[in-house]
Amino acid sequence: MTDQAYNFAYLDEQTKRMIRRAILKGIAVPGYQVPFASREMPMPYGWGTGGVQVTAACLTPVDVLKVIDQGADDTTNAVSIRKFFQRTAGIAVTEATQEATIIQTRHRIPETSLTTGQILVYQVPIPEPLRFLEPRETETRKMHELEEYGLMHVKLYEDIARHGTIATSYDYPVKVEGRYVMDPSPIPKFDNPKLSDSPAIQLFGAGREQRIYALPPYTNVVSLDFDDHPFQPSKAPHDCDLCGAADSYLDEVITDDQGGRMFVCSDTDFCRSRRAAGHVGRLGSAAVEASE
């Protein structure tokens, strides 16, 4: 049911046109941050206003929307954003990754491979990968113009000098098509390889910082590294205790105050479908049924 007091997908048509033009320029120059006149949204900055505006500009009445936060469909902010679009656009929603046509995400890329025709919309807090090295927009813009990315390599190299390894575990910078260094949003670096050569369109929206950027399908995305310290995606060295998956990103759940803990898939849809298909982890499915 749509809320008749608002336009389809909340935003007015002129705002949507402005966002759509920015998205198209983003697609044309992969990894480049296109400035756009972000609007105040009915949720606070930091809650995904950039992603929400991009999703609103992309939604059609025939879309099926999935919203995740931390990989899960049932986290409060994901629930809130999904309800917002149900109310203002009247679209269908799903938790199943392969059924969705648009997936809005915060901090994760789904484990299930995306497909042609899907759009993954990322919520981005700080779109500028160089921001913590250089706080000034006027400077970082120049650095992108001149492809002056030495500072980033210096930072990563200082990590190696101090820790023996690159001590960036999420929000790990990437280079797009050999040109722009891009911030992949705070996804764990475990997810970085999924950015490259995806069949889906990937759109990034930063509302407070007023930037949109994009990765068309089949775009080459490389995580920055060094020959002697190659990029390594990492995750907890465990299997999922619920579904037994050995290759998915895991959340650590503290189970008691005696140091007890379990590891479960961060991607709730992935974990559920595996369990539905009969996969059982260390703590079995019985424990799960009991708690639900």
């Binding site: 105040e40 606070p44 900055y45 930091g46 809650w47 206003t49 936060d69 931390q70 990989g71 986290t75 902010n77 915060r106 901090h107 994760r108 807090p125 001590a167 575990s169 999420y170 929000d171 705070p186 996804i187 764990p188 670096k189 475990f190 407070r208 990492s234 995750k235 907890a236 990103y249 895991l250 959340d251 650590e252 961060s266």
Partner: peptide, 24 residues
């Protein structure tokens, strides 16, 4: 409005990123 939003968003779950820091 921008400042409040970004400041208060750190109340939202960040456990995926925290987990990767924990591993590291």
């Amino acid at each position: 409005v921008q400042a409040t939003g970004f400041l208060e968003h750190i109340k939202l779950p960040h456990y995926v990123d925290f987990q990767s820091e924990l591993e590291l």
